[in-house]
Amino acid sequence: MFERYLILGVRSIILALAVIWSAFPIFMVVSSSFKTPIDIFAFPPKFLAFTPTLENYRMLFRAWPQFVEGLWNSLIVTVGATVLTAVVSLAAGYAYSRFKSRWLTLSAFSMIFLRMLPPVVVTIPLFPVVNQFRLNDTHALLILLYAAFFVSLSTWILKTFIDQIPRELEEAAEVEGATLFQRLTRIILPLSVHGMVAACVFVVVFAWNEYMFALIFTSSEAKTAPLVLAEITGTLEGVQWGVLFAAASVQLAPILVFVLIVQKYIVIGLTAGAVKG
């Protein structure tokens, strides 16, 4: 009996520490975004006992109109990359699930192989090409880059989901005269909605938060929110911390809510896409 309570106690302490470790940095930044400059660096820190103010947010939107544009660009790029990834991965996932051939196996293997290569390396040869095609600083370029690095995982996740849809359903539909496209949109798509979500969450989070490609390939027109946020960090002078926290909170809030809503699919997707195979 004693041992059981001991184990329970140790578990609780570990989990409490883990929760503090995960939540504390987020909590500090979000709560500090509502603090006055004096309260922000008060020691010991004021966790809840402070008078909230919206001044930091007011300053942010007055002094940094680029940040709003950045959020808008991030939204366009995220939606674009997600839609592109979803459409092409569904088609490929279906093909890998339903058809078998030596050639397909080889291409599936090459997909996973390419996923292992470091992204920063491709920026060197892509840089002159991108300039030549005037793709520099465009949404389209970021959409293509982000999708390229996630189609492999998404295809794999969708394949494992489509594997579980009985072929008999499609065979019956074909007897009734359904085309491949109709089978895809009327049977496969509705039955693999969960797989679709699991296949998309990763590219959504990546595209919304990505920094390196955006740093190299955007300068003004397509500059995303993380990049503007980094710029605000670079111009820190004394009282600017509050503005920075407000910006970080605005950038973080939507994606954090999204991740918490779809967390079940993150678990499903990781186990289907990474662990299997």
């Binding site: 987020i26 989070v205 938060n209 920094y211 993380p226 980094a230 970080a248 918490l260």
Partner: peptide
Amino acid sequence: APYAVSEVS
């Protein structure tokens, strides 16, 4: 939750 946080944030 930290999975949702960008490197910048």
